[in-house]
Computed example of a mutant assay.
Amino acid sequence: MLTYEECLAMCDVTQDEVSAIAEHEHVDPIIALAIGQYLCCHEGEHMIKKIIIDDINHAEKIGNIEHAEVLRKVLSHFIATHPEGATSDAA
């Protein structure tokens, strides 16, 4: 059986990106990891970008500025490492 950490090491998403997906989709981290990997392998990077942006907007709406700032850094890293998602109009 593979551990969560082993699965994460084999995927194209980071722990922070998995956390953003889990937060947005209200799922456990292992499910979020599978969603993120699936999207990265099937030209869905723009969807992950949109998920992170939605999380930023939600954090700002509820006044959690610190979390919004963390998510902005996650978004910046995601765009830097997945430039295919940067070209969409999700922002």
Rank of each mutant, 00 (worst) to 15 (best):
C40I: 00
E17L: 09
H42G: 04
C40L: 02
I21N: 03
H77Y: 12
C11I: 06
I62A: 04
H42Y: 05
C41Y: 06
E25P: 11
D12E: 00
Q37A: 02
A34C: 01
I51H: 03
F78W: 05
L75W: 08
H26A: 04
H46N: 03
I21V: 05
Q15Y: 01
E43V: 00
I53N: 06
I79C: 03
G63F: 11
L33I: 10
C7T: 09
S76D: 15
V13D: 05
T3C: 11
G63C: 04
C41P: 00
I56E: 00
D16V: 03
H58M: 11
I35H: 02
K61M: 10
H77K: 13
M10V: 15
E66P: 00
A22N: 09
I53T: 02
N64H: 03
F78R: 01
K73R: 10
A59Q: 13
L39E: 02
V13N: 08
C41M: 10
E23H: 11
D54I: 10
E25T: 02
L8H: 09
E69T: 13
K61T: 07
H77V: 06
E23Q: 07
L39P: 06
A34F: 09
L71D: 03
A20R: 04
I51C: 13
P29Q: 10
E60L: 13
I21W: 06
S76T: 15
H26V: 11
V13R: 05
L8Y: 14
H46G: 05
D55R: 15
I30V: 03
H67D: 12
E60K: 09
E17D: 14
D28L: 11
C7V: 14
I62T: 12
I30F: 14
A80Y: 09
Q37V: 10
I51P: 01
K61P: 04
I30D: 12
L8D: 13
A20G: 07
E6C: 15
V18Q: 11
K50G: 12
D16S: 09
D28H: 08
I52T: 09
D16Y: 10
L33W: 10
H24M: 08
I35G: 05
I52C: 08
K49G: 01
E45H: 02
A34I: 00
S76W: 12
K73P: 07
E43R: 08
L33Q: 00
S19R: 14
I31G: 01
H42D: 09
D28E: 14
K73L: 01
A9T: 15
S19T: 13
I48F: 07
H42S: 00
A22Q: 12
F78N: 05
K50Q: 11
E6Y: 03
V13Y: 02
E17G: 04
E23P: 00
K73S: 11
L33T: 08
C41R: 00
D54M: 11
H26I: 06
P29Y: 05
K73H: 06
A34S: 00
S19L: 15
I48W: 12
Y38P: 08
H24R: 13
Q15M: 07
A22S: 05
